[in-house]
Design a binder for these strands. Structure first.
Length: 673
RNA sequence: GCCUACAUAGCUCAGUCGGUAGAGCACUUCCUUGGUAAGGAAGAGGUCACCAGUUCGAGUCUGGUUGUAGGCUCCA
C-alpha cells in the first residue's frame, strides 16, 4: 500500500505501484479527463510513474501553469518528430520551454527553414497529434549499452554529435539517461510529458531564427524554430490575437503614426523627437521634477564630457570601456592643409559620460558637507551615451543616448535602510501614476567582475535585504547580477508584449565615495566616508516612454496626451470662434490646437481620432451662437453640448496623474501585495 | 559583434524575362462652406540606401558598405 497526501490535506491509500493516474481515477472521472501530469513531493512527473510511499501528490490539470509547460515541452517533441519526417537530414539538439511557448534548435546546414515551411510542419504535427500516441518513458539503466539508447541514436541518422555531447555530459555527471517515445519518435529527455500526443492539437509555429550550439558563436549555427501550444483552441486563438495586438502596439510604429519620434540612418540608435514626442518627454520629466521636489531632492547638472582620467578614478574605464564613447580630434597637417590626421589623441583625453555618478561626486566635493545635511539627494535628468552592439538596438527600448531620471543620495550607513524604504514607496507611486501594476522586484548581489572588499559587499547586501524585509515586499534574488560597484534592487515592469523591462534601480555603493575620497563631518567632528546610493525610477526616459506608448497603445491618458483637445470648426465660417475657444483653453493651461483646414467635419474628426486625441470639440453655427462646444470624447464618443466653462471644469478634473488625485494610493502600494 | 531577411516618393507598398519608375495615403493649388471616422479636380514629388562590378543597357544580376527587422550574444 502507498499512502498519499493530497493538496487539501486528506489522505488516500492506494495499492503499491499505483500511479498518479490511478490516483486520479480513484478521485473523479472529471479529474481523469483533465489530468495532465502530477506533482509528487514538489517534483513534476508523468501521470504514469509509480508514486513512492508517503508522498504528497497533486494532480496537475489543464488549468495549471505547470501543466502548460509540460504540454509545451511535449509539443517540442512533436515538432521535432514532424521536422525529422519532412527533413530527414535534420539533427536535433535541444528543445526547451520558454515564456510563451517552446523552441527546438535544429542542425540542418543545407537547408534554411522558413515560415513557408511552417504549414507543412504544422500539418504533420496535427496528423501525429490525431494519431494519439502515448508518451512512453524508458530509462537506460546500463548507460550506452541500453537498447533504448540505440533506438534513440538512430532517430536522426546515428551521427548526432550534439546529442552525443549532451549524453556524455550526463554520463559524466552520473545521471541516468531517460528517453521519451511517442510512435516511432524517441528523444533524450528528462520529462515529464503529457500522457498522449492527442493533447497536442492546439499548436502553432511562430518564428524561426538563428542560434548557436551552446550559445557559442564559434560553434555550429543552428536553426531555432519557435512554437507555442495550448490546451484549448480558444486559448491558442487568444494568444495569437494578443500577438497581433502587440504588433499593432509596437512603439516604433505608433511613434511614427502619432508623430512622436523617428530614427535616421545618420544617427543609429539615437532617436529624433518630433514636437509631440518632445511634449511627452517634457511631461515625463516635469512630472518627475514635481515628485523630486516633494521629496527634498536638489536638481543639478554635470557636464556631458569629462576627462578620461575621471573614469579611471570611478572604475568605469576598467569595467565599462566597451560601452563608452571617447573623443578624438582631427587635425590638419601643418604643411599639407589638405591632409587630415584622424583620431588624434588629445593631451588630456576626454570621454562622454555613460553614467552620472562621477559628475555628482565632483559636485559633492565642491564643498565640505556635514552629517546635518544628510541624506543629501542630488538629482539630474542626465543625458548619458552608451555604445550598444548594432544588433542590440531596438526602438526606444535600446538606444545609444538616453536621459536617466538619475539621483544620488549621500548618507550615513545608518540612513541607508530608511532611504531605501522611502524609494520603494516613491517608485510604487510613480509606476502607479502610469497604470503600470505588473512590477517585479529583484535583489542582485555581487558579480564576478567587481570592485570593493568582501566586507563592504556583505554589509551592502545586508542593508538592502533588511530594507526589503522591513517594507514586506516580495522580491526575487538574483545572485551575481549586481553592478560592479555594489548590490542593487531592480524594478522590472512587464509590457503588453510580455517582455520584462528593467526600469527602476536602487544601487548601493560603498566604493565610489572611497575612490573619489568623499568626506563629511560627523557629529564627532571627524571626517567620514559617506554611503552613496544610485537610483532611478523611470530608468531611461526614452525607454519608459516606449513602454507607456505600448501600454496605452498610444491612447495616452488626458494628463499625458501631447494634444489634449482639438477644436474643429464645421466650416471656415467658424474659424474665428474656434480660434477663440482654442486660445481660452490654451490660456487655462491645456494643450489645445485648432484644425482650421478646409476639410469637411467628418474628415477632421477622422484625423483627430487617428491621432488619438482625448477630446475633439466640434463648433459650428449653434455653438458659436450659444458660446458652447460640442464635445466628442475618445473613450465614450459624443457627449453633446457644453458651455466652455463647463468643459473646462470637466477637464480640470483630469489634469493630474491619478496618484496625486487619489490620496489613498500612496499608502496602499501596489508593490507590497 | 554573429546568423538570416529586407532597403523603390514624406508614409505603406507594386514594379513580370535586365530595356531610364507606378498606386494609395500625405503634401500644394483650385472648386465645394459643410454637423460627428475619408467631398471633388488638378499639380508637384525619385541619384530605386550607398560604393564597386557584370552587361550595349541594372530598381532588377554579383560583391562590398551602411541601416533596419527577427533571433543569438552582450548589457542591465
Amino acid at each position: 500500500m502507498v499512502s498519499v497526501k493530497l493538496p487539501d490535506g486528506s489522505q488516500r491509500d492506494l495499492p503499491s505501484g499505483a500511479t498518479a493516474s490511478d490516483l486520479a481515477t480513484s478521485i473523479s472521472k472529471a479529474l481523469v479527463k483533465n489530468a495532465v501530469a502530477a506533482k509528487v513531493n514538489g517534483e513534476i512527473v508523468d501521470l504514469f510513474r509509480p508514486i513512492p510511499e508517503a508522498a504528497e501528490v497533486a494532480i496537475l490539470t489543464k488549468k495549471d501553469d505547470e501543466a502548460l509547460e509540460v504540454l509545451r515541452h511535449s509539443a517540442a517533441h512533436l515538432m521535432a518528430d514532424a521536422i525529422l519526417r519532412i527533413f530527414p537530414k535534420a539533427q536535433l539538439t535541444i528543445g526547451p520551454v520558454v515564456d510563451d511557448g517552446f523552441y527546438y534548435d535544429i542542425y540542418l546546414p543545407d537547408y534554411r527553414i522558413s515560415p513557408e515551411d511552417f504549414v507543412k510542419i504544422e500539418e504533420e504535427m496535427q496528423r501525429i497529434a490525431k494519431e494519439g500516441h502515448a508518451f512512453v518513458r524508458t530509462e537506460a539503466d546500463d548507460g550506452l549499452a541500453d537498447e533504448a539508447y540505440h533506438r534513440y541514436k538512430q532517430i536522426d541518422g546515428g551521427n548526432n554529435q550534439f546529442k552525443q555531447e549532451i549524453v556524455d555530459d550526463l554520463l559524466a555527471r552520473g545521471a541516468t539517461l531517460s528517453f521519451y517515445q511517442h510512435g516511432d519518435f524517441i528523444d533524450l529527455c528528462r520529462g515529464p510529458h503529457v500522457p498522449s500526443t492527442s493533447f497536442l492539437k492546439n499548436v502553432k509555429l511562430t518564428s524561426v531564427a538563428g542560434s548557436y550550439w551552446r550559445a557559442d558563436a564559434s560553434r555550429e549555427q543552428l536553426q531555432r524554430v519557435y512554437g507555442t501550444a495550448f490546451f484549448s483552441k480558444q486559448d491558442l486563438q487568444e494568444h495569437l490575437r494578443l500577438l497581433e495586438e502587440a504588433k499593432k502596439r509596437d512603439h516604433r510604429l505608433l511613434g511614427e503614426q502619432l508623430e512622436l519620434f523617428f530614427f535616421s540612418e545618420d544617427a543609429p540608435g539615437f532617436p529624433f523627437f518630433l514636437p509631440k514626442g518632445t511634449t511627452l518627454f517634457t511631461i515625463l520629466s516635469d512630472y518627475m521634477r514635481g515628485q523630486l521636489r516633494l521629496r527634498n531632492y536638489h536638481e543639478v547638472k554635470a557636464p556631458l564630457i569629462l576627462s578620461e582620467n575621471l573614469w579611471h578614478t570611478s572604475g568605469h574605464y576598467e569595467n565599462y570601456l566597451e560601452n563608452m564613447f571617447f573623443t578624438k580630434m582631427k587635425l590638419r597637417d601643418e604643411k599639407l592643409p589638405d591632409e587630415i590626421h584622424d583620431n588624434v589623441e588629445e593631451e588630456r583625453p576626454m570621454a562622454v559620460k555613460p553614467m552620472n555618478c562621477p559628475g555628482h561626486c565632483i559636485l559633492f566635493k565642491s564643498k565640505l558637507h556635514s552629517h546635518n545635511e544628510f541624506p543629501l539627494r542630488y538629482a539630474e535628468m542626465g543625458l548619458v551615451h552608451r555604445r550598444e552592439l548594432s544588433g542590440a538596438r531596438h526602438g526606444l527600448f535600446r538606444v545609444q543616448a538616453f536621459t536617466q531620471d538619475d539621483a544620488h543620495h549621500f548618507c550615513t550607513p545608518e540612513q541607508v535602510e530608511g532611504e531605501i524604504g522611502m524609494l520603494i514607496d516613491f517608485f510604487a507611486e510613480v509606476y502607479g501614476a502610469f497604470g503600470l501594476t505588473d512590477v517585479r522586484i529583484e535583489l542582485s548581489t555581487r558579480p564576478e567582475k567587481s570592485i570593493g572588499s568582501d566586507d563592504m559587499w556583505t554589509k551592502a547586501e545586508r542593508a538592502l535585504t533588511s530594507a526589503l524585509e522591513a517594507k514586506k515586499v516580495n522580491y526575487v534574488l538574483n545572485k551575481g547580477d549586481g553592478a560592479f560597484y555594489g548590490p542593487k534592487i531592480d524594478f522590472h515592469i512587464r509590457d503588453v508584449l510580455k517582455r520584462s523591462w528593467q526600469c527602476g534601480t536602487i544601487q548601493l555603493d560603498f566604493s565610489m565615495p572611497e575612490r573619489f575620497e568623499l568626506r563629511y563631518v560627523g557629529p564627532d567632528g571627524d571626517r567620514h566616508i559617506p554611503v552613496m546610493l544610485h537610483r532611478a525610477a523611470f530608468g531611461s526616459l526614452e525607454r519608459f516612454l516606449g513602454i507607456i506608448i505600448e501600454h496605452t497603445a498610444g491612447r495616452f491618458p488626458f494628463w499625458l496626451a501631447p494634444v489634449q483637445v482639438q477644436v474643429l470648426p464645421v466650416s471656415e465660417k467658424y474659424n474665428d470662434y474656434a480660434s477663440k475657444v482654442t486660445q481660452r483653453l490654451v490660456t487655462a493651461g491645456f494643450r489645445t490646437e485648432a484644425n482650421l483646414r478646409g476639410d469637411r467635419i467628418g474628415y477632421k474628426i477622422r484625423q483627430g481620432s487617428l491621432h488619438k486625441i482625448p477630446y475633439l470639440l466640434v463648433v459650428g453655427e449653434k455653438e458659436a451662437g450659444a458660446k458652447e462646444v460640442n464635445v466628442r470624447s475618445r473613450e465614450t464618443g459624443e457627449l453633446g453640448a457644453f458651455s466652455v466653462p463647463a468643459f473646462l471644469e470637466r477637464i480640470e478634473a483630469e489634469k493630474l496623474p491619478p496618484t496625486l488625485v487619489t490620496e489613498e494610493r500612496s499608502s496602499s502600494s501596489s508593490l507590497s501585495t
